[in-house]
């Protein structure tokens, strides 16, 4: 007797919980033949605002953890990702990747997470410095997390781009709201499930799936958002985002990589990329007896 398969609906990951969209809306995820293979929750404007609130609450738990601990948590996430490699590769294949390419992308994503995990307790030494000022002062400049980062990830490569954006923002102590487009939703949901069992504090990372252009305005104008990174938005959406960000003088970065460029370890794990996720603070103190 044949058994009827239980199909999972992909949900949002907000504040450590797995709500369906507040609107109840879902979208179909299709294979290259156009057949519906799964459904995922479609994040609404309200979901996006809740995700930011959750990130704001989750920020201190992640930012104030020691850098060593953050590195270990991220490494743990890499371990969990490796453990679910087969399932992720299958998800990537469902949405069009060949078997070999899917496996390679998952492996690259695991390795990426390992590399970024290693930055947690080193990036300050590379990006920070002591300033030799012309007076009796100790003066130094240190990188600090920006706060809540919003990242719009691209459709391709679905997993590796998301892992890179989330991992980079996490490695320097930020909280993240990632928004994956429908084409990348299956991988995004699975990556959320990986992080959920990796000791990441609730709310430190939040993952939404849905139509990105609907969320540009609410996320670009949200007062609690420090930085918006756009890797998946088209030119007109990016312009809309920059206009939305102007009111709060919010930082907006466009990541130029497409396709295979996401596979470049040197570029994606360079301190010059991570620098977009930090603020520099210059401290002065007199030196005297």
């Amino acid at each position: 007797m044949s058994r009827l398969e239980v199909i999972k609906t992909g949900k949002l990951w907000i504040g450590g919980k797995w709500p369906r969209s507040e609107s109840g809306a879902t979208f179909p995820v299709c294979n290259p033949q156009g057949e519906v293979v799964a459904r995922c929750a479609s994040a609404s404007r309200k979901d996006s605002r809740e995700a930011v609130e959750a990130a704001r609450s989750g920020l201190s738990g992640w930012r104030d953890a020691t850098a060593t601990l953050r590195g270990q948590v991220m490494y743990r996430a890499a371990e969990m990702l490796e453990g679910r490699a087969a399932e992720l590769a299958e998800a990537l294949q469902v949405t069009g990747a060949g078997a070999a390419a899917a496996r390679q992308e998952v492996e690259a994503a695991v390795d990426r997470l390992v590399m970024l995990a290693g930055w947690c307790d080193k990036i300050h030494q590379v990006l920070g410095c002591q300033n030799s000022v012309a007076g009796p002062y100790h003066c130094f400049t240190i990188p600090q997390p920006c706060g809540v980062i919003v990242a719009f990830s691209p459709p391709e490569p679905p997993l590796l781009s998301l892992v890179t954006l989330v991992g980079a923002a996490m490695s320097v102590g930020n909280a993240v709201v990632a928004v994956a487009p429908p084409q990348a939703a299956l991988a995004a949901v699975l990556f959320g499930e990986v992080l959920a069992v990796s000791d990441v504090p609730a709310g430190a990372v939040n993952i939404l799936t849905g139509t990105q252009k609907d969320l540009v305005e609410p996320l670009g104008t949200h007062r609690e958002v420090a930085v918006v990174v756009s890797a998946g938005l088209g030119k007109s959406e990016r312009m809309k985002l920059r206009n939305a960000a102007a009111d709060g003088i919010r930082r907006v970065h466009a990541v130029p990589w497409t396709g295979a460029a996401w596979g470049d370890d040197q570029e994606t794990c360079s301190p010059w990329f991570l620098e977009q996720f930090v603020e520099f603070k210059t401290l002065w103190h007199p030196s005297a007896t």
């Binding site: 030799s132 000022v133 012309a134 007076g135 003066c139 002065w284 007199p286």
Partner: peptide, 11 residues
């Protein structure tokens, strides 16, 4: 313990 210090080398 100081204020309004500026220097070319200090970001």
């Amino acid at each position: 313990n100081t204020y309004n210090q500026f220097d070319a080398a200090a970001p």
